[in-house]
Amino acid sequence: MSLHDPRYKARIASHLAKYPDKRSAVMPLLYIAQEAYGWVSPKGVQEVAEICEMDPTQVKSIAGFYTMYSERTKGRYWLHVCTDLPCALNGAETFYRELQDYLGVEEGGTSEDGLFTVEHVMCLAACDKAPMLQCNFRYMESLDMEKMKAWIEERRAELEAAGQGQGA
């Protein structure tokens, strides 16, 4: 799906309208590119560059600076687990390790079924609800491994039911 797809037209236009300079829309447009391609693909970078009238190098530079843009493909669910100090004081590191073990992945890895990519992140401003994570940037708070396992299996079952368990 390219950024030129009609479905993005209005959103792109509304972002461009916010700023006196097209270049400022690079961040919102990178989010749209990520949504369109599933990651910030070279093609996405190129398209954002054209729309924002920037050199693609500058777009790539912005994409690389921020942790919420992914320059590589990932699983369907990105799990960003906060292991920063307040969460860690409340067991987040253990939680993260167990989660990794359960999914059979290392830091930054994607589970074999291609569904889950896990990464640790810094403080997500939910320290009073540790352990917590963001799944595809949606908060999931006050977690424990039991809840997590159930959730993971639900996702798997969901896809099983939809008959597309493999690769996302």
Partner: peptide
């Protein structure tokens, strides 16, 4: 305007640069 995961963009001048693209 949404940032994208960078603590430094809370520093005021970095925040303005980030807004500028």
């Amino acid at each position: 305007h949404l940032g994208a995961g960078a603590y430094i963009c809370g520093e005021e001048s970095a925040m303005l640069s980030s807004l500028e693209g």
